[in-house]
Simulated scan of single mutants.
Amino acid sequence: MTTPESPSTIGLTTISRTVASLAVGVVHTLERAVVGEARVRTARGNAWEAVCADRARAGQRAELDRLVTELAAARAAARDRQPVS
């Protein structure tokens, strides 16, 4: 049993994928030309930047926690020093 072959057509998704693929290629080539080969963003570079940003946020969070703890301790000490009326 043979099935009739449908004519080859280009669908909307095929065109979209083709355009997206060409756009990525153009952007990649343009980036290499503008910033130079050594400064092209890579997945490894992006991951390292994310790690550094996470570390910076953790450091800021720790500093804020330390300041809040100091402030709470100072308020408790000031409350303890006030005479009771």
Rank of each mutant, 00 (worst) to 15 (best):
residue 38 A to E: 15
residue 38 A to Q: 11
residue 38 A to F: 11
residue 41 R to A: 07
residue 42 T to P: 01
residue 42 T to G: 03
residue 42 T to M: 02
residue 43 A to W: 02
residue 43 A to Q: 11
residue 43 A to V: 03
residue 44 R to M: 02
residue 44 R to T: 10
residue 44 R to A: 08
residue 44 R to D: 03
residue 45 G to S: 12
residue 46 N to Q: 14
residue 47 A to N: 06
residue 47 A to I: 14
residue 47 A to Y: 00
residue 48 W to C: 09
residue 48 W to H: 12
residue 48 W to D: 10
residue 49 E to C: 05
residue 49 E to Y: 00
residue 49 E to T: 14
residue 50 A to G: 11
residue 50 A to N: 11
residue 51 V to A: 03
residue 52 C to M: 08
residue 52 C to I: 10
residue 52 C to W: 10
residue 53 A to N: 11
residue 53 A to R: 14
residue 54 D to Q: 03
residue 55 R to V: 08
residue 56 A to H: 07
residue 56 A to T: 14
residue 56 A to V: 11
residue 57 R to T: 04
residue 57 R to L: 07
residue 57 R to Q: 15
residue 57 R to M: 09
residue 58 A to F: 10
residue 58 A to Y: 12
residue 58 A to N: 09
residue 59 G to W: 05
residue 59 G to V: 09
residue 59 G to T: 05
residue 59 G to S: 05
residue 60 Q to W: 02
residue 60 Q to H: 10
residue 61 R to T: 02
residue 61 R to G: 03
residue 61 R to S: 03
residue 62 A to M: 05
residue 62 A to F: 11
residue 63 E to L: 11
residue 63 E to D: 12
residue 64 L to G: 06
residue 64 L to A: 11
residue 65 D to Q: 07
residue 65 D to C: 04
residue 65 D to S: 08
residue 66 R to L: 00
residue 67 L to N: 03
